[in-house]
Nucleic acid binder design. Structure first.
Lengths: 200, 200
DNA sequence: TTAATAGTTTGCACCGGCTGCAAGTTTTTC
DNA sequence: GAAAAACTTGCAGCCGGTGCAAACTATTAA
């Protein structure tokens, strides 16, 4: 079958990309090397992956799908940030599981380029999450809260990874959870600028 | 003076970059065009900006400096997010001269490349802001709250720009303020996942 | 005024990512 | 086995980005 061969090539490319990225750092690997390692031409590489990073990251469209699914099937009473939490937890667990994904996860977390590429691999992803969450919450599109929840959740993840990198003692998931907790209950109860009059 | 001329060239480049990006879309503008429009060589462009996106984003280090200053000289009793708010307000006001902010905001939110670049380039800013805020709050480096405040504030700004783009009725500053208010008092008081036992 | 000096601009050569095209090569289908 | 569809490949080329060294220009000292 043709399908099999395509999958095989794709896997070979992804594997080579990951291996070489782990060896030499994601920014020091060239597409030429990856293609060579997978015994195809450079041009063929770009028939499979639109960007170098996609090959290193592997397929991650699954993650968005799973997150959206988690959102749609969440119990009715579940609060929005809780839903977000489960979705995030799911993805992070996946990155931390055994085998290739854990190595890939380590790589991602050690490289800002990849980390941000992962989180922003598509702006649409974030928009879709926001839309799904807004619908779930029964809020109109364009209201602040669902968008802010999604965006702040992303911020919490980034902060967690950053802190984890600086002091690897605490697991990322725990740090993310702490961030979510803070966000949930208020980051600064004493907030209160007194300059409303400055608005024109 | 030399200084003046450098600032002039820089401004000319940034202006041309923004104008052309608005005209043709940020991904269809070449550095060559920008340089030509500013009457310098391509190579000179790269003496001023490390990436094409930096020119379009128009980031100048002055803003970070001013924000850091604002933080250090803030009244003792001021709560951290309030301090953050004033700093952000200061920068946004500066950018807002005759609607430039909203046009730039629209542009940024409509281009994944730009948004990605914005987040990448703000990693460093966020670190410095976090350090300053942590010191102000008397918290140890590596604690979650100051980092989260800074990062979430950034998220609120981005969300505000996005919402403003979708519905330009409300000014960006007001949307940012709403976001801050939400963050301050808690994004989701009902947050409470019940799966602590899942931690291994 | 002039000459040294330091800072800026520029052209040039080059790399790597990425794309369109057109010509092969394989695989399927009849 | 031949036609058609699918996949691969080389090639030419664009663009972003960098290092280098020459040319230019403003500043300063003599």
């Amino acid at each position: 079958m043709r399908e099999r061969k395509k999958l095989q090539t794709r896997a070979a490319l992804a594997d080579a990309a990951l291996r070489l990225a782990l060896e030499k750092g994601p920014d020091h690997v060239t597409v030429e090397e990856i293609a060579e390692a997978a015994d195809v031409s450079v041009r063929t590489f770009f028939n499979y992956f639109p960007h170098k990073e996609h090959a290193i990251l592997g397929r991650n469209s699954e993650h968005l799908e799973r997150a959206l699914d988690r959102m749609r099937t969440a119990p009715a009473g579940e609060s929005p940030l809780t839903t977000m939490w489960y979705a995030v937890q799911d993805v992070l667990r996946d990155l931390e599981s055994d085998g290739e994904l854990s190595r890939r996860g380590e790589l991602i977390m050690s490289s800002p380029t990849l980390l941000y590429q992962l989180m922003l691999s598509s702006i649409d992803d974030e928009r879709q999450l926001t839309a799904a969450l807004a619908e779930r919450m029964g809020e109109p599109a364009g209201s602040t809260r669902p968008a802010l929840i999604v965006s702040a959740a992303g911020a919490a993840c980034r902060v967690a990874m950053e802190l984890h990198k600086a002091a690897p003692g605490r697991p990322v998931l725990e740090l993310v959870r702490e961030g979510f907790q803070l966000l949930a209950q208020g980051i600064d109860p004493a907030f209160g600028p007194s300059n409303q009059k400055d608005f024109s």
